[in-house]
Design a protein around this nucleic acid. Structure first.
Lengths: 313, 313
DNA sequence: AAAACCGATTAATTCGTTTTCATAATGTTG
DNA sequence: CAACATTATGAAAACGAATTAATCGGTTTT
């Protein structure tokens, strides 16, 4: 493979001058520039990005840690991240984690090994304190409320909108509310926001019986409905964690021949639109764009994006 | 930052021995190994991936070129690609193209600049011959029939299943069929497969009037229905290019107060399942896994994954 | 006892850039 | 015309590894 030294030798100039030409820098005479450019074209030379990264001490890579890549939350987030990365000439590296601590740690180590300039955790299994520790090796952005971790964060401001949703239910006469969550309250900021909102509206933490966790897919929604029915619990309404999941819940009740509670979904998905369900749009694309911006700027800010309750569709 | 030389100096061994220790290689005595390991731990040393890549002449990066990252076809493909990449310890770099020739060329150049070891084109705007030219700089895999390009390919074997779908329609008495496509027949292998299947079943190329192109989203499906109605054309059935789009078509006809033709969707999406539409599952995750395998192995094979017509759901 | 072999180790080269520092040539000012 | 900038260029030193060839005891073959 032809390198910068070949170009320099054949053009009869020094390596540094060639470097200046290919990087569009100053202090090269027009004549020299065109002479070198000619040789570059003739030899079909292209600089080696890896060598360049090593020399500059920067890769322009941003690693994006995500538990599963086929989930709409992550898809939308990724869309925002790649959009912003593209504009800033950064590269997005996808890192599957499945909430596996070893994997997450391995990605954090990647920061130390200079594989990425920055890391965005769309979600995480490790404690925030551990993520925070790795900030010394590169900037780390999370997509949830940072608590007391000091981590820069871009996230959907869920709590307020969850409160709006629950107030909406309450004022429409729905008293007994079921809550579906992707992960247990103890480990998930999203689930905590749900519980906090519940407390704000109903004056007490949600009891474990009204919550079902580990609900990710439509099938999980069906399962949740069955769980509620088995437990012999009656609900006026259920706040599901996605529209697809709400549809699953509806099916679960229908399959059991039971009346379907009033449902509110999330994510503003097609399924919810077709079923005319109220939903919550979290504008994750926007969240992703901000997350990337934080990652590359190194700013230690917290950006909360307002989400929106959509009751008519 | 502490580097391999620091470790060598402090441990009292040469750089090459340290290198052998951190790479788990032979020809290091147990005593030396543990002595060096101790220093590595003390200094909290981690090897620099960029330097390693440069020295080895390999990055373990696979670039994935995709027109838009929020489309289910690409989402599923990406899911397969990352799954396989993860298993093989490769990294997936997302490259947005929006079918822009300059961008695609830039990514091809990335291969020359050694930014990626291989490139997967989930779709492309540039002619295949141009992609083929860049194979000299690294392996390139496409996700469609390679024609005479000689490019390795993993793709959904659409034509046969499209034929199945059209035969299904024909045998059920549907004669006048409309076809929806994401891109014009001239530039898209998928659209060509549709046209080929049509010819196999109905004995002639589909006329331009029965095709609507540039149909990507549900809203495009609605638009397509209106286009057909405006043209004053009547169809017994329409083969849509996704379930979501089929739903859009249905809405378009309903909004105009017209009877909805029989619809077949694609992608096996939730929307189609809910509406009990026949659909075609292309198993894109599997396609993605094979594509990555081809990319890193460098095999110049062609792998066609059979898709499946689902008429009962 | 010379020749061959083997495991452990090191010195030196290589990968392909960017960047700093030095120097020469040219231009500008008082 | 001396003093001083400014522009143009090159030599050499990073950047941080992997790898090749060489060396050196020690052991085994012949």
């Amino acid at each position: 493979m032809t390198n910068i030294r070949d170009v320099a030798r054949i053009a009869g100039y020094s390596v540094s001058t060639v470097s200046r030409v290919i990087n569009q820098q100053n202090y090269v005479s027009a004549a020299t520039r065109s002479a070198i450019q000619k040789v570059v074209d003739e030899l079909d030379y292209a600089p080696n990005d890896v060598a360049r990264d090593l020399s500059r001490g920067k890769t322009f890579n941003v690693g994006v840690v995500l538990p599963h890549e086929d989930h709409p939350y992550f898809t939308q987030l990724i869309h925002g991240i790649t959009t912003a990365a593209f504009a800033a000439k950064y590269h997005v590296v996808l890192l599957s984690s499945r909430y596996d601590a070893d994997l997450e740690l391995n990605y954090l180590e990647g920061l130390r090994r200079k594989a990425y300039d920055a890391l965005i955790f769309t979600s995480h299994g490790l404690p925030l304190s551990q993520l925070a520790y790795y900030q010394q090796y590169g900037s780390i952005v999370i997509c949830e409320h940072p608590r007391n971790s000091g981590l820069p964060a871009a996230y959907a401001h869920r709590r307020t909108t969850y409160r709006d949703a629950l107030v909406y239910l309450k004022t429409h006469g729905y008293q007994r509310i079921g809550l579906l969550m992707s992960r247990p309250i103890a480990v998930s900021a999203t689930s905590q926001a749900t519980a906090d909102a519940y407390q704000m509206v109903f004056g007490q933490r949600p009891s474990p019986e009204i919550c079902v966790t580990d609900v990710i897919t439509l099938a999980d929604g069906e399962r949740a409905a069955k769980t509620y029915l088995q437990r012999g619990q009656h609900f006026d309404a259920i706040l599901a964690n996605s529209d697809d999941i709400a549809i699953g819940v509806s099916r679960g009740y229908q399959a059991a021949g039971e009346p379907v509670p009033f449902l509110i979904g999330q994510e503003h998905q097609l399924s919810g639109e077709l079923a005319h369900l109220p939903t919550i749009d979290h504008y994750f694309k926007k969240v992703g764009e901000h997350a990337l911006q934080l990652a590359i700027s190194g700013e230690k800010k917290t950006i909360a994006i307002d989400s929106r309750l959509i009751t008519e569709q």
